[in-house]
Design a binder for these strands. Sequence first.
DNA 1: TATAAATATATTGTTTATCGATATATTGAG
DNA 2: CTCAATATATCGATAAACAATATATTTATA
Lengths: 67, 67
Amino acid sequence: MIKINLDLLLLKRKMSVTELSKRVGITQANLSILKTSKAKAIRFSTLEKICQVLDCQPGDILEYVAE
Amino acid sequence: MIKINLDLLLLKRKMSVTELSKRVGITQANLSILKTSKAKAIRFSTLEKICQVLDCQPGDILEYVAE
DNA sequence: TATAAATATATTGTTTATCGATATATTGAG
DNA sequence: CTCAATATATCGATAAACAATATATTTATA
């Protein structure tokens, strides 16, 4: 499965999910869905904004976990 | 923007896009769209299969490029 | 250079699912 | 206990993946 992990970076940046959602431009609810790996897809525009705001690469937040 | 780069890994694995598309389970045409960064989103199920077949991590193929 | 193979592009239709908007539940800090 | 942060839940609209298919273009190779 593909896991998304924002916790580490949010901690580093001392940023809340709510704050990130505002900066990214999506609702707190929908970012929460992403954050908990409940989403079945992601728009590159969203991924891009997250990377932009958190100043990171997709690889920093996306992980493939074999099962 | 978010760029997707499969070329390096395909070269390493000596695998063609057509071959990858068969293994991943999507058409050659649609994988080509992904490969050329024309897609606006990606399903995690697709990303997962690509990582599985190429034995890699999302970070190996996805890149955020600031503009 | 001719031919075939690989890849890119294009079109149409179906189906899926993001994301907005919103409400509410749950958790945690103080 | 209170409040803020986060998670969960609906619903609807819209966007877009992906299938299927055809075809153009590029690349390899005999």
